[in-house]
């Protein structure tokens, strides 16, 4: 399975890589990283095949926000589950994200056990 992480903090990728180190070592997941929404879309158009893919995206980013990315991905590739991860977990944003078609909405600091279960389930919550 492919995981595309979208976050303007490079350290976030490092953190996720370390968290998923066993799975990556065992070849269960392939990690791709994008520092912005545009970069993520470019990857989706090119190198990363948009199949068997879960996108984990931050919301507050310079340029286009995670919610804009979510909207575009959902429009172009409705099959790709997008999990939103944010530090600003107000109910309004959560409602907006879910309305735009987010697969799940997680708060920082991320509970990795829950995230792993979510990813294993193909990004679908529950």
């Amino acid at each position: 399975m492919n995981i595309l992480m979208v976050d303007d903090e490079p350290d976030a990728v490092m953190l996720f890589r370390q968290q998923f180190r066993r799975e990556i070592r065992q070849g269960e997941y392939q990690f791709a990283f994008a520092g912005s929404a545009d970069e993520a879309l470019a990857l989706l158009d090119g190198t990363v095949p948009p199949t068997d893919l879960v996108i984990l995206s931050d919301i507050n980013m310079p340029g286009r926000s995670g919610l804009e990315l979510l909207a575009e991905v959902h429009a172009r590739w409705p099959a790709i589950p997008v999990v939103m991860i944010t530090a600003y977990g107000d109910p309004e944003t959560e409602a907006r994200a879910l309305g735009l078609g987010a697969a799940a909405f997680l708060h920082k600091p991320v509970e990795f056990t829950a995230l792993k279960a979510l990813v294993r389930a193909g990004g679908r919550a529950g």
Binding site: L15, Q18, A87, K108, P109
Partner: peptide, 17 residues
């Protein structure tokens, strides 16, 4: 608080990791 929250999350995450 918002500004500090992000780096603090990293500190906590990396610490437990």
């Amino acid at each position: 608080a918002h500004e500090i929250k992000n780096p603090l999350n990293f500190v906590n995450n990396f610490a437990s990791l």
